[in-house]
Amino acid sequence: MEKTVFVYRATEERLEICQWQNIPDLVFTFLKVFPFIIVGIILMALISNPALSIAALAGPAMVGILLASVGGDSNYKAIYKRFRRDEVIWSEIRKVLLDERKGLLALSVDWENRVIDPAEVDLANKEHHIHLYPIYFRKDQEQAVLSLMKEKMAEGTSLMDGSYKYPFSG
Rank of each mutant, 00 (worst) to 15 (best):
F36Y: 08
D99L: 01
L107W: 03
Y80Q: 03
T4P: 08
A144E: 15
D117P: 06
M160A: 08
N49Y: 08
A154S: 10
Y80K: 05
A45M: 15
A106Y: 07
R138F: 09
K3R: 11
D140G: 12
V96Y: 04
D110M: 13
L104V: 00
D25N: 12
S163G: 09
L146A: 03
L107D: 03
E155S: 14
Y164H: 05
K152Y: 01
G59R: 03
R101L: 06
L46M: 14
F137T: 02
E151I: 06
L105N: 00
E13I: 02
P35A: 03
C18E: 14
Y8F: 07
Q141V: 04
D117S: 10
V121Q: 03
I116V: 12
E155G: 09
L31N: 06
S91R: 13
S158F: 10
W111S: 13
C18Y: 14
A144N: 12
V109D: 00
G64F: 00
R85Y: 10
I47K: 14
A58I: 02
I65L: 10
S163H: 14
I54N: 06
G156P: 00
P24R: 09
L98K: 08
H131W: 06
D122R: 04
K32L: 15
L148N: 03
E155D: 13
T11H: 13
G72F: 07
D99P: 02
Q21P: 08
E151C: 13
Q141H: 10
F6K: 07
L52I: 15
L66T: 08
E100T: 14
I135Q: 05
D161G: 12
I89W: 15
I93A: 00
K102Q: 10
S108K: 01
P35Q: 08
R101G: 05
G170K: 15
R114K: 14
E100Y: 03
V39F: 11
N49L: 05
G72A: 02
A61I: 05
V33I: 15
G72I: 02
I38M: 01
I41E: 14
Y166W: 08
L66M: 08
F30K: 07
L43M: 14
W90A: 00
K150W: 03
P167D: 11
Q143H: 09
H129V: 02
G72Q: 06
M62G: 14
E16C: 06
D140H: 13
V63C: 04
E87T: 10
N75H: 04
R84S: 09
V109L: 00
V145Q: 04
F28G: 02
K165L: 15
D86I: 02
E112H: 11
L52H: 14
L132H: 02
M160E: 11
H129Y: 01
V96L: 04
P35W: 03
K77H: 07
V88H: 01
I42K: 07
N49D: 11
I17H: 12
K150Y: 04
E127F: 11
L26K: 15
I41N: 07
K152F: 00
D25V: 08
F83D: 04
K3A: 07
L146I: 03
S108I: 01
M149Y: 05
K77V: 02
F168K: 12
L26R: 15
H129K: 06
F34I: 10
G103D: 05
S147N: 15
L107M: 08
R138Y: 13
P35H: 03
I17N: 09
I41H: 14
